[in-house]
């Protein structure tokens, strides 16, 4: 039973028996893993507050023969996301990130670009750049890394460039159409949203506006399409997406 060391993000925890937890971690080295944290629910647990969602931790764990679950030996907190998620809006957004990573990617399959994406998003979230911006960047890259993102620069039917006219998309298929080829019902992607998608592809989240600012509508339009594609790619109901939509109905999520 050799000890394995890894750096990871806590995606979520589930109660197990009276005082244990199962922690789902997304590690840089070994992808998504599930570990049993013995006694983690006790008041004087040796894991303390390190197993909170989205915390960046360094863990050591071991495997028992003929057991599917891994066992957590130690968990050192590198960066806490506790304060970040004290706000319900950001808690919901972080829950969305964790659920999408959990649903989209297989267990024990290392994915260094995705790990970097989540780490960058969390670091950026701490600076409060606006949740719509975080969502747009995250959705864009999750779809791209999972191979589901279609080209957002040209029409899927005629191949014509989508600038300066803009385009439209539906949640039913991973494609974008120009105004001439658009289906009857579709979600509008204005020129600003098309430019925003290009900026997500080529720039860091902090520098999205380096060639001119984006409007709140650009973020809303791009997010509306990307969220539909994420939901389609997940192939199941995302609880956190429902919570995000409910939040959107009661308050406006901010882009900046």
């Amino acid at each position: 039973m050799p000890l394995v060391n890894a750096e990871g993000l806590i995606l979520r925890t589930l109660p197990l028996s009276e005082s244990d937890l199962i922690a789902v971690l997304f590690t840089r080295e070994h992808g998504k893993i599930r570990v049993v944290a013995k006694g983690a629910r006790r008041l004087k647990s040796r894991f303390g507050g390190s197993l909170g969602p989205m915390n960046r931790v360094r863990v050591s764990y071991y495997e028992k023969e003929n057991r599917e679950l891994l066992y957590l030996n130690s968990c050192e907190l590198l960066e806490s996301a506790f304060a970040l998620q004290s706000d319900y809006e950001l808690q919901t957004v972080c829950a969305y990130f964790t659920e999408v990573v959990d649903v989209f990617f297989l267990e024990r399959e290392a994915n260094a670009p995705l790990f970097r994406l989540v780490a960058v998003i969390l670091k950026s979230a701490a600076l409060n750049p606006g949740v719509m911006r975080l969502l747009a960047y995250f959705n864009f890259w999750v779809l791209r890394l999972s191979g589901l993102l279609p080209g957002l620069a040209v029409c899927a039917v005629c191949g014509k460039g989508l600038l300066p006219t803009g385009g439209c998309a539906t949640g039913a298929s991973f494609a974008v159409w120009c105004p001439g080829c658009r289906p009857q019902e579709g979600l509008l992607l204005g020129p600003g949203a098309i430019r925003l998608a290009a900026a997500c592809a080529n720039k860091s989240i902090e520098n999205l506006d380096s060639e001119g600012p984006f409007q709140e509508g650009d973020f809303s339009q791009l997010n509306a399409v990307l969220e539909k594609w994420v939901a389609k790619g997940a192939d199941r109901k995302l609880q956190s997406l429902e919570a995000l939509r409910a939040l959107r109905r009661t308050s406006e999520l901010t882009a900046s």
Partner: peptide, 10 residues
Amino acid sequence: LAPLKGIGPE
């Protein structure tokens, strides 16, 4: 409040 469990303020 637990968005992953579908529990919001409502």
